[in-house]
């Protein structure tokens, strides 16, 4: 089965005043056409950096130090500027976390929507405007034609994220990367926006990479889930497998920290003890060892390789073959 997006052993390094540190340490995954893949992990686990590397958005301080990114068999890391411009927006698009800052406050909504249409589909102004109004209406913005003339400040947060989604899918891209698209929104709006993304991408057959720290959101929306920790994928599998039978102790800890809806809430919400390893600090062994209830001497000595568990499941733990028990 050929993959739409194929990320292989991706390594991203940041140059900092204190020396280089590796934010992404050999991440591999692939996304098939129309598939939905979730990436979960806490802040600093490298999930956003991975997404930025895929779309070639890394700043000057960061470099892809190794690995490959292939889109439809083409080497994305080798694209020149023209190829990159034709690819982004048309084939691959992104939705950002904060819709307040991802729309230009001084540019009318209409122009922000039509720009992409004109750039990639070659529509003239009239056709692009008509299509833009249609797009806004389809993401549930009332009175779409009139609102094209307005500036983002007249839109609420949820509305802006709808606009951002409309822009991202305007050219029917084959891949949509959504980096915490609902984190900045109210809980009630979150569900609407996720539903919208669900509907729009299903209609277009667009594959989605959803990045979130919320395992609940990811597991309901996605077919497959990658769990990242300290720049590595520590576990991957289908959403059901991950939720029902987590093999990596970190995934288990993440699941355990979701408060249950049944019974009384505990006085203190459950959390994972300790903190992730400091970026840039060298460590031997498993990066999770210091916080892991299962940690043994072997964990501190050698970094576990991803272990094939059957059904396409992977877990990078010395004790992955043991079920939770």
């Amino acid at each position: 089965m050929s993959a739409l997006l194929d990320v292989e052993d991706l390594v991203v390094r940041f140059a900092t005043p204190g020396g280089e540190h590796t934010a992404v340490r050999g991440v591999s995954f692939s996304v098939r056409a129309g598939e939905r893949v979730g990436i979960v992990g806490e802040s600093g686990s490298g999930k956003s950096v991975t997404a930025q590397a895929v779309l070639r958005l890394l700043g000057p301080a960061a470099t892809v130090a190794g690995g490959a990114v292939r889109f439809d068999g083409r080497d994305v890391l080798a694209f020149d500027r023209g190829e990159l411009r034709r690819w982004r927006g048309a084939q691959a698009a992104m939705v950002f976390q904060d819709p307040l800052s991802s729309l230009n406050p001084l540019v009318r909504i209409g122009r922000q929507v039509t720009e992409t249409l004109r750039e990639h589909l070659g529509l003239d102004r009239r056709a692009a405007t008509a299509k833009a109004a249609e797009l806004l209406a389809s993401v549930g913005i009332p009175d779409a034609a009139a609102r094209l003339r307005e500036y983002p400040m007249t839109f609420s947060g949820g509305m802006r994220q709808r606009v951002a989604i409309a822009i991202a899918i305007s050219c029917a891209p084959r891949l949509l990367i959504a980096d915490e698209p609902t984190t900045a929104l109210d809980v009630t709006v979150q569900a609407q926006v996720l539903d919208l993304m669900d509907g729009m991408t299903a209609d277009l057959g667009t594959a989605v990479v959803l990045i979130s720290h919320d395992l609940g959101v990811v597991s309901t929306f996605c077919d497959r889930v990658l769990v990242m920790y300290a720049g590595r994928v520590v576990e991957s599998g289908t959403a059901d497998q991950i939720v029902e039978d987590p093999r990596h102790p970190y995934t288990r800890a993440l699941l355990a920290s979701i408060p249950s809806l049944e019974g009384e809430l505990p006085r203190r919400l459950p959390s994972i003890p300790g903190t992730p390893p400091q970026p840039g600090r060298a460590h031997t062994g498993c990066a999770f060892a210091d916080r892991c209830p299962l940690a043994a001497d072997v964990c501190r000595a050698e970094d576990p390789e991803p272990l094939e568990l059957g059904d396409g499941r992977l877990a990078a733990c010395h004790f992955a073959d043991r079920s939770a028990g």
Partner: peptide, 11 residues
């Protein structure tokens, strides 16, 4: 971010 967002659209 809006500049990054615009770049991701191939503008």
């Amino acid at each position: 971010e809006f500049v990054t967002a615009t770049r991701t659209l191939g503008v």
